[in-house]
Computed example of a mutant assay.
Amino acid sequence: MKSFNTVLLLAASVFMAPVSAQDAAPVVAEAPDAATAAIGTPEPGKALVVFFRPSAFKGAAIGFIVREGETELGKLRNANFFTLQVEPGKHEYTVHSEAKDVTTIEAEEGETYFLSGEINMGFMAGRPNLSPSDLTAFRGAFPKLKPSKPLGE
Rank of each mutant, 00 (worst) to 15 (best):
F52L: 01
G59I: 00
K2T: 13
N5L: 15
S131D: 07
K75H: 10
T71C: 03
L8I: 10
A37D: 12
G89H: 05
T136L: 06
M121F: 11
S131I: 14
M121W: 13
R67I: 00
I119A: 04
G110H: 00
F123A: 06
S148D: 08
P128Y: 09
K149G: 12
R53P: 04
A29F: 04
G45Q: 03
M124A: 08
F81T: 02
A38I: 05
E92D: 14
V50I: 12
F57M: 12
F123G: 02
Q22G: 06
E70G: 05
N80H: 11
F81C: 05
R53K: 11
A125D: 13
A99H: 08
L10A: 15
A21P: 04
K58R: 13
G63D: 14
T104S: 13
P54G: 08
A21G: 10
H96R: 13
M16I: 11
Q85P: 02
I39S: 03
T36Y: 00
P150D: 12
V19Q: 15
A29I: 13
H91Y: 07
K2G: 13
F57Q: 03
V95W: 01
G40Q: 06
F142C: 02
R77Q: 14
A56M: 13
T103P: 00
S116H: 05
G74D: 04
P42C: 09
L135K: 09
T112I: 11
N120I: 07
L76D: 03
L10K: 09
P32A: 07
S55V: 08
I62Y: 09
S148L: 02
A37H: 00
A29G: 14
L84T: 02
Q85A: 10
G140V: 06
R127F: 07
F123T: 10
P147I: 07
N129C: 14
